[in-house]
Simulated assay, not measured.
Amino acid sequence: MEISNDKLNTRLNAYRIMWVLVFFDLPMETKKERRNYALFRKNILKDGFSMFQFSIYLRHCTSRESADTHVRRVKLMLPPKGHVGILVVTDKQFGQMEIFSGLSCVKPPETVQQLELF
């Protein structure tokens, strides 16, 4: 059985393309904590992350190296207090996620077509 180059490239890309997910639960009791929350959220948005759910942000990366770069950037943005989780998954794994809105199943976000300049 012969596999065409298009099918092979698609299959390989699904394992090469990465998604970075950032989960956070930050305190917001004082004015300083609210400022830290807003600054952290603003900085991850500036780095190309999009809100997936409240306190869950994600970013599409074209390679593991790109994902590692954005993980390092998030680590540099960490606020002094609170809990932050960072998860990196392949596009293949991300595509297997089941998402529901109420009782209805919905499609995961489409792969973002973006230009990265270094």
Rank of each mutant, 00 (worst) to 15 (best):
N13K: 11
T30W: 04
K46P: 00
F23I: 08
L78F: 14
N13Y: 12
I3W: 14
L103K: 13
L8T: 07
I86H: 06
F118N: 03
V20K: 07
P109D: 04
G102C: 10
K46F: 02
L76I: 02
R11F: 09
Y57T: 06
T111C: 03
K75W: 03
E2G: 06
T69F: 08
E29W: 01
D68C: 01
L87V: 15
R35I: 10
V74L: 03
P27Y: 04
T111I: 12
R64N: 07
L76Q: 15
R34W: 10
P27H: 02
I86G: 05
K92C: 03
I17C: 04
T69V: 05
D6Y: 12
L21N: 01
F100K: 15
S55H: 07
V74A: 08
T69Y: 08
D6K: 11
M18S: 10
K81N: 10
F40V: 02
Q114S: 13
V22Y: 02
I56W: 01
F49Q: 08
H83T: 08
H70A: 01
E116C: 08
L8G: 01
V20D: 04
E98F: 07
M18C: 14
Q113A: 10
S55Q: 05
H70T: 00
A38Q: 14
K92S: 07
R41G: 00
K7Y: 09
Y15T: 11
M51K: 13
V84E: 03
F118I: 07
H60R: 08
V74I: 14
L12V: 13
W19D: 00
F23K: 02
L115E: 12
R73L: 13
A38W: 02
I44N: 04
N43L: 09
G82L: 01
E65L: 03
H60F: 15
I3K: 12
R73V: 04
L115R: 10
E29S: 10
Q113V: 10
R73D: 08
N5Q: 09
L78N: 07
E110K: 15
P80Y: 03
A38C: 05
G85P: 00
M28H: 05
M28E: 12
H83M: 08
Q53S: 05
N9F: 11
V74R: 02
T10F: 10
Y15Q: 13
K46E: 11
A14L: 15
D91T: 01
S4Y: 08
V88S: 09
K81T: 06
Q93W: 07
E110P: 04
V106D: 06
L58C: 04
E98N: 12
I86C: 05
K107C: 05
Y57V: 03
V112S: 12
V112F: 04
A14R: 15
Q53V: 01
N36E: 15
N36M: 06
R73T: 05
T10W: 09
R16H: 12
K31Q: 11
V20I: 10
G102D: 13
Y37H: 14
P109V: 06
V84Q: 03
W19E: 00
E110T: 11
F100L: 15
R72N: 13
H70E: 11
Q113K: 15
H70G: 00
